[in-house]
């Protein structure tokens, strides 16, 4: 029963590989699916299918063009704005809370760098940006955990840090969703011979 399930799952995953494979790698996905028929052991078949899915997903990710102009400009503008907000906050906080101001300053600089990178770079690497954003979430958590001497301000800055974290997580998530959705559609159109 469980063996059957693993075989079925492996078959399902390999079928998904065939759908997911970019045009140039379609025959590889087909080859993987045919190899699965040769594997008798269900556990081995499932492990094989998972490896194939990872391979094809990475191939797909390599072929997706994340340089959609409008998304790039929106994210660039949004990160630029966040950089400006962070720097204004630094100026206001510096005399009273130098430590927290330094954290915010770092966040602001990284946002500024991201914004510039997105606006200028022809080879926008979305993974790089995602890593930078992820690293920044760490900074926000640091900011949230920074102890402020006056209780009312502590609550305020924690709320601001949380708000910032949620805000740019939403921007990043929405941009990625738009980018992948639009590009998959565009690529599907191309595959069908339609206009991109």
């Amino acid at each position: 029963m469980i063996g059957d399930m693993r075989h079925t799952t492996a078959t399902m995953l390999l079928r998904h590989c065939q759908t997911l494979a970019p045009k140039g790698k379609a025959q590889w996905a087909e080859a993987m699916a045919r190899e699965r028929d040769e594997i008798a052991d269900p556990g081995e078949a499932l492990a094989f299918a998972v490896g194939c899915l990872v391979t094809i997903s990475l191939e797909r990710a390599r072929t997706v063009d994340f340089l959609l102009g409008e998304v790039r400009w929106v994210v660039s503008a949004a990160t630029g704005l966040l950089a400006m907000f962070a720097l204004v906050a630094v100026l206001r906080m510096l005399p009273a809370y130098p430590q927290a101001a330094m954290v915010l300053g770092t966040i602001g600089l990284v946002f500024g760098w991201c914004s510039r990178l997105l606006a200028n770079s022809k080879e926008w690497r979305v993974v790089t940006i995602a890593i930078v954003m992820f690293a920044l979430s760490g900074l926000s958590i640091v900011a949230m955990n920074t102890s402020f001497p006056e209780p009312p301000h502590e609550a305020l800055y924690r709320a601001l840090a949380l708000e910032g974290l949620l805000l740019w997580s939403a921007i990043l998530g929405a941009s990625l969703a738009i980018a992948t959705g639009r590009l998959y559609k565009r690529q599907a159109n191309k595959s069908l011979g339609g206009e991109s």
Binding site: K25, W28, G51, T55, E59
Partner: peptide, 16 residues
């Protein structure tokens, strides 16, 4: 895969 001990997730990218 059987001969080299490589996993499918390693073998196929190299083949490609």
């Amino acid at each position: 895969i059987k001969e080299t001990g490589l996993k499918s997730g390693t073998l196929y990218p190299i083949l490609m």
